[in-house]
């Protein structure tokens, strides 16, 4: 039960949604775009979030489409993780998104919601980071398309009022060879998903242009793709153990230590996952 009243809007166009957002802000109202609502509802329920209004974006047709044209796949931000899995258009994203929460919740969670989540794992970002996806963003000034690397730094750096419309993925990435691994505190997660929980480490790696590209969640407090780690992975004539040793040293922040996992165990898991990536993609 959400213990306070808030306004609910369900616009039919993206323009209407962003205008509404600005108008609400102008009236001093803190609004949230609302996709599946799993996070907003549970945070509100626990007194951790108090939006004055929510703007439900699921009624905007453009956000609810899959489209393949001009060598790119477009996935609307309101597509649920279950719909993405069923479409089977981008297997790596199936793996990354298909092991978030559980099936019932994935029927609600949207791609946009997971990318913009407050809970830090945002595992769908891993598939988009390694495939260098482009994000389509709408705001009052219009529509812009940005490569994910320009706007995803630890989290998606949207400006106030920006609405994530969807993502473009280049077709050559859709079938690229990949490795996608996830481990929770209880053990390895298979695919289809056989275990539920936040990641100790979750990793997506892809071989593109003869190079390994890899992104990680769980390791640090934020998900990341690191060019420095990839450089180490792609060095020739370096033994695997040495690559792993060097790669762990250059990850962008301290290894996270929390109740899900100690930093020491995370490092152990990270190293074994790196070994598997190298073994399978080198």
């Amino acid at each position: 039960m959400i213990p306070f009243d808030f306004e609910y809007y369900r616009p039919e166009t993206a323009t209407e949604a962003v205008t509404l957002y600005t108008d609400l802000a102008g009236r001093g109202k803190n609004a949230r775009y609302f996709g599946g609502g799993t996070e907003i509802i549970s945070f509100c329920r626990l007194y951790q979030l108090y939006p004055h209004a929510v703007i439900d974006i699921k009624g905007i047709p453009e956000l609810n489409t899959f489209e393949q044209k001009n060598g790119k796949l477009f996935i609307g931000a309101a597509k649920t993780l279950s719909q993405i899995q069923e479409s089977n258009l981008f297997p790596l994203l199936n793996y990354c998104g298909g092991r978030v929460a559980d099936h019932t919740i994935r029927n609600k969670i949207t791609l946009g919601g997971n990318l913009c989540a407050m809970i830090p794992y945002r595992e769908t970002s891993l598939a988009l980071l390694v495939s260098e996806a482009e994000l389509v963003i709408q705001n009052r000034k219009g529509k812009k398309i940005l490569p994910i690397s320009e706007i995803f730094h630890e989290s998606l750096r949207l400006e106030d009022g920006d609405l994530l419309m969807g993502v473009h993925i280049r077709e050559e990435c859709l079938g690229a060879p990949f490795v996608c691994l996830k481990k929770t505190s209880d053990g390895n997660v298979g695919y289809p998903q056989d275990r539920v929980g936040y990641p100790v480490v979750s990793v997506a790696a892809m071989r593109a242009d003869n190079k390994i590209q890899a992104a990680f969640s769980g390791v640090c407090i934020f998900p990341f793709r690191s060019r420095t780690v990839e450089e180490v992975f792609n060095k020739s004539n370096l033994p695997r153990e040495e690559k792993i040793r060097q790669a762990v040293e250059v990850i962008p922040a301290a290894i996270h230590d929390d109740m899900i996992s100690s930093a020491g165990y995370r490092e152990f898991v990270l190293k074994s996952m790196m070994a598997e990536i190298l073994e399978r993609l080198e």
């Binding site: 505190s185 209880d186 053990g187 100790v200 996992s261 100690s262 165990y265 152990f268």
Partner: peptide, 8 residues
């Protein structure tokens, strides 16, 4: 007895 506990 999580994998971490056994590892430890």
């Amino acid at each position: 007895l999580t994998p971490q506990a056994i590892w430890q």
